[in-house]
Design a protein around this nucleic acid. Structure first.
Lengths: 205, 205
DNA sequence: AAGTAATCGTTCTAAATTTCACGATTGAAA
DNA sequence: TTTCAATCGTGAAATTTAGAACGATTACTT
């Protein structure tokens, strides 16, 4: 089997979301053109992405939603639940803890960490906030997969080091600075400032 | 002059941030290798990006930070202030209103909108929350450039329509569904669920 | 004054991604 | 039964992007 690029994974996840909505609406057939309208991805791209997982469509008809969902999930989502830990329970961290979109996609924040005494040992949305020092132990016990950095810039690298030591293999970094980690650890940067400035530049151009 | 790709714009914005930090530290020279260490972008890529704006470096020395900053800013066409409006003052919306990274980059949230009566006419971080109905008027008066969608999925398209009508030309969409807008309006989707699932898939692979 | 080391800038090469074009297949209609 | 329209799947072309190699330039050193 070929390897799947991150871009492809993103698109397939979009398709999966559309498929789940369609199935919920009791629609059992869908064409690549339909998915294109729902996602903005071109129909050719969609067919190519899907075809890399095998021949699951029928000409003149399209794809059977339930079957396609199963096929995509098998290839993409091996884990049943994604266990996440959060570093930094400030405004952004709290918003993530309360983010409603995670539940139905089986994303679960299993623990949070902070340095500030006033935040520790509280529960937010039924997630316990631990002191940072306990991170390695808690992360291993709860078998977390991914960590979120939602701390101020100057603490970001330190938190990243703790994450790597604790055995996390994926990091979503909301802090406005790049972090250094072994390349076996995947990092996804989400820099809000850059996003806005970039969009602004694209507009003026 | 060639056109600048969105990827390049993102990288250049990273360089600019580094340059501003350096200038603040009174460092007036920097090499592509230095910038590489600060940003994680390869030095070759950095030189290539910069060289597309002209010859501004000196061999054996590197780049003069102040000059380079000026050159990059001129080509990126950075407006002095980016004016943003926010739709949806829930947990995520509040976190954005309080996000500390915006100030020094001259990103300014100039107004917020919500449907919920209990949130309206309050001030959060000195930003007034208006009822959605007043959006077109307020947006035009404050000359906003970009809008943020931080409302539940089912309201996203409606809010997007209002944004387009109000004359916004860029949208950052935090809702977990694609929105339909004229292609003159730039959209940046930030779908937290997809980000986490995608990272999870990349890890397992 | 000449050699040397560091760094820029450019050209070429390679790789990945997207788009295009077209054949293949299927169900429906005449 | 034959034709037809819709849709899938794929191989090739085109575009974009990243990477590598290398010459050119500059300042420092001896």
């Amino acid at each position: 089997m070929k390897k799947i690029s991150p871009n492809t994974i993103n698109r397939v996840l979009l398709y999966l979301r559309v498929l789940e909505d369609l199935i919920k609406d009791k629609r059992y057939l869908v064409s690549s053109g339909d998915i294109s309208r729902f996602t903005g991805v071109s129909d050719v791209q969609i067919r190519k992405d899907i075809s890399s997982f095998g021949k699951v469509g029928t000409p003149r008809i399209g794809y059977r939603t339930i079957e396609l969902k199963k096929v995509l999930k098998d290839f993409i989502l091996q884990c049943d639940v994604v266990r996440i830990v959060l570093f930094g329970v400030g405004n952004l961290g709290k918003a993530i803890l309360k983010y409603p979109g995670f539940n139905k996609d089986r994303i679960k924040v299993v623990a949070a960490f902070d340095r500030l005494g006033s935040r520790i040992n509280k529960k937010i949305n039924s997630v316990i906030v631990y002191p940072v020092e306990r991170a390695p132990e808690v992360i291993k016990r709860l078998r977390a997969d991914i960590g979120i950095i939602a701390v101020p810039k100057k603490s970001a690298q330190g938190v990243a080091d703790i994450m790597v030591l604790s055995g996390l293999r994926g990091i979503v970094n909301f802090s406005p600075c790049p972090i250094n980690v072994p390349k076996s650890v995947m990092v996804k940067d989400i820099d809000l400032t850059i996003e806005f400035l970039s969009l602004c530049c694209s507009i003026k151009a």
